[in-house]
Design a binder for these strands. Structure first.
Lengths: 332, 332
DNA sequence: TTGTACGCGTTATCAA
DNA sequence: TTGATAACGCGTACAA
C-alpha cells in the first residue's frame, strides 16, 4: 500500500470501471437493480483502488450522519464509563459512530457541547449530564435532533428518557435501619453534584423528618483525597456515624478514614454508597451499596434513541430500578 | 424557540439579510474584508434565525473535519478512561470533536473501527489498542490521515508515538527485591492482554534468569471475579507468594483472596500492580504500584497529534517514564 | 439495467 | 467590499 495516496472518489472508480458514478453509487448501497457482472467489476475496482465512500458527502446527500452525540460530564467516573461502554458497544453493532462531548461540570463547556452537537449533524443525542437544563434540551430539539436524556425527564415529540429508581428503595433502606440501627445518619452533601444527588438528599431529609429521626448533612468535596482527610479530622471528634455517600470513591474515603482512625466497621462507622459499582465489592471492607447496571443503561439508551430516530419508539420513558446489596460496611 | 424547525441554511440567512451567501460565509469565518455594518446585520439575522453552519458541508468544502478519531479497546478500564478524559479535555479546548471507537479486544471490531475511521474523514487518529498491528497503521496512513499511536512505536511521515517506560524501572524494582526479599516471584500472565504486558513479562523472565532466581508464571483471566476465585484455590496450597499483576483490579483480586484466606500482607503474600491508578491507594491494604499519569498521556497525545496535523511536530517520539510507589502490599 | 443532471450546505476563486 | 459560480463527494429522481 503506497503512502500519501490522495483520497479516491467515486468518479475515479466510475471511470476505472467504465460505468457512470450512479452505478458505482448503486453498488455501494447494494441496490438490487445492478447487473451481477458490472457489480463485480465495480467491486473489484473499488478494492483495487482502496476506495472508501466519504461519510461526509454521503451524510450531506442523505441528510443522515449515522453519528450519535454523547454528552457526559467526564469519563473519569466508573459508573459513567460503564454507561459509555454500553453505548459504544451497541452503537458499533448498529452501525453508528459516537462522538463524545464532555462538559466537565461547567456551564460554559455545556454550551460548547450544544453548539458542537448541532453543528456536527448527529442523528441523535444521548445526554447524561446535570449541567443541561430544560432550555438546553429544547434547544437541541428545536433543531429537530432526537434526544434521549438519562436521569432527566424531558418532554417533546423527538425525545425520550431513562430514569433511575433510587429513591423508593433508598427510603426503604433508611427506614429499615431506623428500626434496628443504632446511629444517626449523616448525608454527604456534594456541592454542585447534580440533580440525582439533590433528589436523593431531599428524599433522605424527608424520610428522617417523617420518622422523626435526627440527622445531619456534611459538606464534602467530590474527591477521594479531600474527603479522606476531612474524615480523618471528623473522626477525632465523632466516633459513631452512619454515612451516606453518593459513589464508591467517596464512600471509600470515609471508610478508609474510619479504619485508619482505629474505628471498627460497621460497629462504630457504617457507610452506604448510593451509586455502587464493581468497586463496592472489591474494596475492603466491602461496601453496602445500591446498584443499577450502568452498562445496561448505556445499551438501552442507544436502543431507545435509534427507535426514536426511526420513529418507532412507543414507550418514551424507561425506569431502571436499583437493588440494594448489603455488604460489610453496614449492619443491615 | 419553536419546535421542529427545519435546519436553516446559509442561503436563507443570505436572503433574509439581503446579501449574497458569499458574504454570509465571510461573516461566519470572520473575514476582515466585510463592512462592519453589513456584518452586524448578518449577525443579527443569524441570531434571529438560529442559524448554525453545517459542519458537514464545511468539512466537505474545506476538506477538514476538526474531528479526531480515538481507538481504544474499551472505556471500562480506569487507566484507559483516564487517557480518554485527557483526550477529550484538550480536544474541547482546541476545537476538536472526538469520535470514539472501541475494539473490545476483537480483531473483527478492530477492522470495523478502521473502516469507520477512514469513512468519517477524521483529521487524525489516536490509537491505544494492541489489536492494531503494523499493517493497520499503514492502512490508516495510506489514506494520509495522521496517526498518533500510544504504546506502539510506528513509523511514517504522518505518524508519531507515545511510549511507556515501565521496563527499566520494573527491572530495578525486581532486582532490589532480590536483594532483600524472601519470596519467589509469580507473574500473572493474561492471555491476549496485549503487547505491553507481554513486553513486561519478557522483561520479568529475563531479569529472573539474569539473576538466576526461580520464578513462576500463572495464567489468569482479565477479570476480578475469576482471578479472585482462582487465588482462593491457590492459597489453599501455596502460602507464600510475591505476585505481579498488570492492573489494580487484578492485583486486588489476589490481595483480597490472600486476606480472605487468612494470610497476612505483605508477610505471606506480596502484590505489585504494574499499571497503578488512584485505586492503588484507595484499596486496603494499599497496593504498591508503578504509575504513569494517564490523563497527561491523553493530553499530550492530542497536543502531538494536532502538531502532526499542522505539520509542525518535531519530536515524533515521546516517552512517559513510570514511577514506583511502595505501599502496603509489598515489603520493599 | 444504466446514465444524466440536479441537490445537499459550504468554501473559495474570480470579477465587479 | 461584495456577488456569481465552480468545486467538495455523494445520492437520487428521471430518462433512456
Amino acid at each position: 500500500m503506497n503512502n500519501l495516496k490522495e483520497r479516491v472518489t467515486i468518479y475515479e472508480v466510475a471511470k476505472a470501471s467504465g460505468v457512470s458514478l450512479a452505478t458505482v453509487s448503486r453498488v455501494i448501497n447494494n441496490a438490487s437493480t445492478v447487473k451481477e457482472e458490472t457489480k463485480n467489476k465495480v467491486l473489484s475496482v473499488i478494492n483495487k483502488l482502496g476506495y472508501k465512500p466519504s461519510g461526509l458527502a454521503q451524510a450531506l446527500a442523505k441528510n443522515k450522519t449515522t453519528d450519535i452525540g454523547v454528552i457526559i460530564p467526564s469519563a473519569n467516573y466508573v459508573y459513567i464509563s460503564n454507561i459509555l461502554n454500553g453505548i459504544t458497544e451497541v452503537c458499533k453493532n448498529r452501525g453508528f459512530t459516537v462522538s463524545l462531548h464532555t462538559t466537565a461540570h461547567s456551564r460554559e463547556d455545556a454550551s460548547i457541547c450544544l453548539e458542537r452537537v448541532i453543528k456536527s449533524h448527529v442523528d441523535g443525542v444521548i445526554a447524561f449530564d446535570d449541567e443541561l437544563n430544560k432550555e438546553d434540551f429544547e434547544f437541541i430539539q428545536s433543531y429537530s435532533v432526537p434526544v434521549l436524556a438519562i436521569n432527566n425527564e424531558i418532554t417533546g415529540s423527538k425525545s425520550a428518557s431513562i430514569s433511575f429508581g433510587y429513591e423508593a428503595l433508598f427510603k426503604k433502606v433508611i427506614k429499615d435501619y431506623f428500626i434496628k440501627g443504632d446511629k444517626d445518619m449523616t448525608f454527604l452533601h456534594v456541592h454542585n453534584a447534580g440533580r440525582l444527588l439533590r433528589r436523593i438528599e431531599n428524599s433522605f431529609i424527608n424520610t428522617c423528618l417523617e420518622s422523626d429521626k435526627h440527622y445531619s448533612i456534611v459538606n464534602c468535596d467530590d474527591s477521594y483525597t479531600r474527603t479522606y482527610s476531612d474524615f480523618m479530622e471528623i473522626f477525632k471528634q465523632k466516633r459513631k456515624m452512619y454515612i451516606i455517600a453518593y459513589r464508591d470513591s467517596i464512600a471509600a474515603a470515609a471508610l478508609n478514614a474510619a479504619t485508619d482512625s482505629g474505628l471498627s466497621v460497621p460497629e462504630d462507622v457504617e457507610v452506604l454508597s448510593i451509586i455502587g459499582t464493581k468497586y463496592s465489592s472489591i474494596l475492603r471492607p466491602q461496601i453496602s451499596a445500591m446498584h443499577i447496571d450502568m452498562q445496561e443503561v448505556g445499551r438501552r439508551s442507544v436502543y431507545m434513541l435509534i427507535d426514536l430516530i426511526e420513529e418507532r419508539l412507543h414507550e418514551k420513558q424507561y425506569k431502571f430500578e436499583s437493588t440494594y446489596v448489603k455488604r460489610d460496611s453496614t449492619k443491615y
